[in-house]
Amino acid sequence: MFNGIGITIAQMLCSTALAIIISLIFGLMRLSSNRLILGIATVYIEFFRGTSLLIQLYWIYYVLPLLINISLEAFYAGFIALGLNFGAYGAEIVRGSIQAVPRQQWEAAKSLNMSPILLMRRIIIPQTFPHLLPPFSNLLVELLKATALVSLISVTDLFFMSKVFNQTYWMSLQVFGTALIIYYILARFFLTPFLRWLEILAARKVGKLIG
């Protein structure tokens, strides 16, 4: 069971990293005035949000390797599917929080003749964090819960191990009950406090909650 927790956390970390990268790239692409870039991002986001995570997981694990002739370990398929899927949701959050930065901040930066890259990096992106983090926190709690799905492509995570125990000892209440409690502890006492701390940190950095 402890190994299972380790795998669940590893899945969580890898897929979070991937999801953040995807969110940033596609979130910024969604704000592009270039039709092609905008179109690609929109299709990606609508596709991954429109179909089910489980289907994407199965497709990436069972179908994709045959199509492009590679072998994909279950662990990789697991966090890739999670990252791609949650990245699509994250991209919409990134887009929304960039749009929530007042237009005047763009104008002020332009009046100081900042380059578009400098403007994004130093003025806009730092200001998105207070808007970004609360919905992103929710998303990450959902992501932690969704990691249970990777057990279905036989990644030996927490839930996979519980199913193995259940088949050996046939004590469903104890086994699945424990699994639920462990997920609860991970979400409520580790992930959520950490995210709350990040939110406070960001708010302070932006200078809205000093003192």
Partner: peptide
């Protein structure tokens, strides 16, 4: 509510399906 929201639907599904017969 907090407990149900923080735990995976998939695990809950197994819990309800396998625990009730016990």
């Amino acid at each position: 509510v907090e407990f149900i929201r923080s735990t995976p639907l998939l695990v809950q599904l197994f819990f309800v399906f396998f625990v009730a017969p016990q």
